[in-house]
Design a binder for these strands. Structure first.
Length: 572
RNA sequence: CGGGCAGUGGCGCAGCUUGGUAGCGCGCUUCGUUCGGGACGAAGAGGUCCCGGGUUCAAAUCCCGGCUCCCCGACCA
């Protein structure tokens, strides 16, 4: 492809809306154009890279035994009502009506559709296992898209679904997919950490996310440096830090005028945060929930949501709190009636807590469970943070940010039961298939790849993700001898099968070098009057400081060698 | 959904306080000179100043209403 004819114009200034490096680079190279919040057009340069990423994903899915299918984006809403996900997805689900006023959705994911498809071909345990996948456009009406392609409303996703006859078989499929994912991320040149993840409201035992560590990431994950335990912060289990224990002392009321926060209480009463209980109010599916957690910990809403089995969970508004007769700032589970009460297990670690008196400006000393209050539910609902201790080995957690580039998930039988995807077992009984699902956002993976593979000059793309493999620059392209030689090199590279972007523009050397670095293709070839006098071309790896001078005839062979080096680096 | 910022040629921005000719840098076109890390000169092209309403002789600028985008948070099977 000749750059002079290619639909790509680079920008010299960074577009104002781009905050992250990958977004900035994609805009400056003209790869993408935003058309609405979280909706993008993809120019040829981007599409080429996306296609490469898709190829990697396809190859690995096929190698893992996947069969490619294509499921519809447009689906009857009734199907989603049937599985309860019309409600579960809430406003993120894009809904519309057709000309006959029938309710439709544009699918954000495809468990329903795939279950129906596989069900049609499923009768016996002999038909299992099955692994199908597709690469297809999803629509999610995200409340806040951000960060270029990292979080968008319309995006291409590889989603795979497995159907197995029993748990052991699912385990095997799951492990095969985990390995496929590791291969994919390695080939894209990014490090990905596999962490335990929240499995969400819909059933399922195991769930793992693949996270690429980066400060621009949206997710926080916890790692134990000692035993290797790694989990999303919204999921991580941890030891509750110790707190002073002792025999229960008599409850005392204490006047605490104007004090509402843990910090104020701790200061006023000369106690430590872990000697207090914090009260937080939520509304879960319309029901007021009173939540207690020790003062040194934070409530983790994801854990809470799961413990409650709630679809919708939000902080109670002031009106809702008042309507329930609760006293913000001085509330506690002691003497609480008529409101569901939930507590973190940390209420069992320590004793003689300071709690609210459910009366403005008063608190209680020496509250203990079960003597003074008995929560309706006790569980792990506290947020794991850096410095907490590992439940498995006692190691001290570190916390890191990252982008979720993949998610694997044991679904169980939620969908197969709801939609009757059953098979006859060897014993002759009808069983629901056990499902798993596995997702990778293609555009997000490209964004992560760019975020990780770059320097201050631009991208440094791995050869199998880069839109082109070679950037061929003709300096002083209007010089007939240069043009002729460069044309020859271009033909040789093309004939040798290398995708080459040929910079034949009448631009200065500086412009071409800068654009070459910005585009970040793995290999750059320069034909110039200076080189030509010695009968050579210059061949340079994007990530190298120095170039090779080789005869024009040897250029393609040298390029081949450098690309092979780069591919070999990825295999390590 | 709460809080904050902003919308002016393709990109980055100024002008708005104090109403009166729409401006700068980059990019683009033509000509000439240059030619290995974002060259120089000259001459040009390109704008419903987000939209609607109002005030006024006159609105990018003031007032009212709306839309959109970005950032923080909430949210994100």
């Amino acid at each position: 492809m000749r750059l002079s004819q290619f639909l790509a114009k680079t920008l010299r200034d960074d577009p104002a809306e781009a905050e992250t490096a990958n977004h900035r680079l994609m805009l400056r190279t003209g790869m993408i154009q935003q058309i609405a919040a979280g909706v993008y057009s993809y120019a040829p340069l981007a599409l080429r890279s996306l296609a490469k990423v898709e190829t990697i994903v396809r190859e690995e899915m096929n190698a893992a035994g996947g069969q490619e299918v294509k499921l519809p984006a447009l689906q009857p809403r009734e199907l989603w009502v049937q599985t309860g996900r019309d409600a579960a997805f809430g406003p993120d689900l894009l809904r519309l009506k057709d000309r006959r006023e029938r309710d439709l959705v544009i699918a954000p994911t495809h468990e329903e559709a795939v279950t129906l498809l596989v069900k049609q071909h499923l009768q016996s345990y002999r038909d299992l296992p099955q692994l199908v996948y597709q690469i297809q456009t999803k629509f999610r009406d995200e409340p806040r898209p951000r960060g270029g392609l990292v979080r968008v409303r319309e995006f291409d996703m590889k989603d795979a679904y497995s159907f197995d006859a029993d748990a052991e078989s699912l385990d095997e499929t799951y492990q095969r997919m985990v390995q496929a994912y590791r291969n994919i991320f390695r080939r894209c040149g990014i490090p990905a950490v596999m962490i335990e993840a929240d499995s969400g409201a819909i059933g399922g035992k195991d769930s793992h996310e693949f996270i690429m560590p980066t400060e621009i990431g949206e997710d926080t994950f916890i790692q134990c440096p000692d035993c290797g335990y790694a989990a999303n912060a919204e999921r991580a289990a941890f030891q509750r830090p110790p707190a002073p224990a002792g025999e229960p002392l008599p409850v005392e009321e204490v006047h605490t005028p104007g004090l509402t926060t843990i910090a104020e209480l701790v200061n006023f009463l000369s106690v430590t945060p872990e000697q207090t209980l914090k009260a937080v109010f939520y509304v879960a599916d319309g029901e007021m929930v009173f939540v207690s957690v020790r003062g040194d910990l934070e409530v983790n809403e994801v854990k809470l949501k799961r413990l409650l089995g709630a679809n919708d969970l939000h902080y109670a508004t002031d009106e809702e709190v008042e309507a329930a007769g609760l006293v913000a700032g001085s509330a506690s589970a002691v003497g609480l009636t008529g409101v569901k009460s939930v507590a973190d297990e940390s209420v069992h670690v320590g004793a003689n807590f300071v709690v609210g008196a459910n009366r403005r400006d008063w608190h209680l000393l020496n509250a203990n469970t079960p003597r003074d209050f008995v929560p309706d539910l006790v569980g792990d609902i506290a947020l794991a943070e850096a410095g907490h201790r590992c439940l498995q080995c006692g190691g001290e957690f570190i916390a890191e940010r990252g982008v979720e580039v993949g998610h694997v998930f044991k679904l169980g039988t939620f969908f197969s039961e709801a939609l009757n995807a059953t098979f006859l077992s060897p014993e002759g009984s009808l069983q629901p298939a056990i499902m798993g699902c596995y997702g990778i956002g293609i555009g997000r993976l490209l964004a992560a790849t760019i975020e990780h593979n770059r320097d201050e000059r631009g991208m440094r793309l791995p050869p199998n993700v880069s839109p082109f493999q070679v950037y061929l620059a003709a300096l002083n392209a209007e010089d007939a001898a240069v043009a002729e030689a460069a044309d020859g090199v271009y033909r040789a590279l093309t004939d040798a099968g290398f995708e080459t972007l040929y910079d034949d523009r009448a631009e200065s050397a500086g412009v071409k070098f800068n654009d070459a670095d910005l585009f970040g293709f793995p290999v750059r070839v320069v034909v110039s009057p200076r080189n030509l006098r010695q009968g050579v071309a210059e061949v340079k790896r994007r990530d190298a400081d120095s170039a090779h001078l080789v005869s024009l005839e040897d250029t393609a062979a040298t390029v081949k060698g450098l690309l092979a080096e780069l591919v070999a680096l990825l295999a390590e």
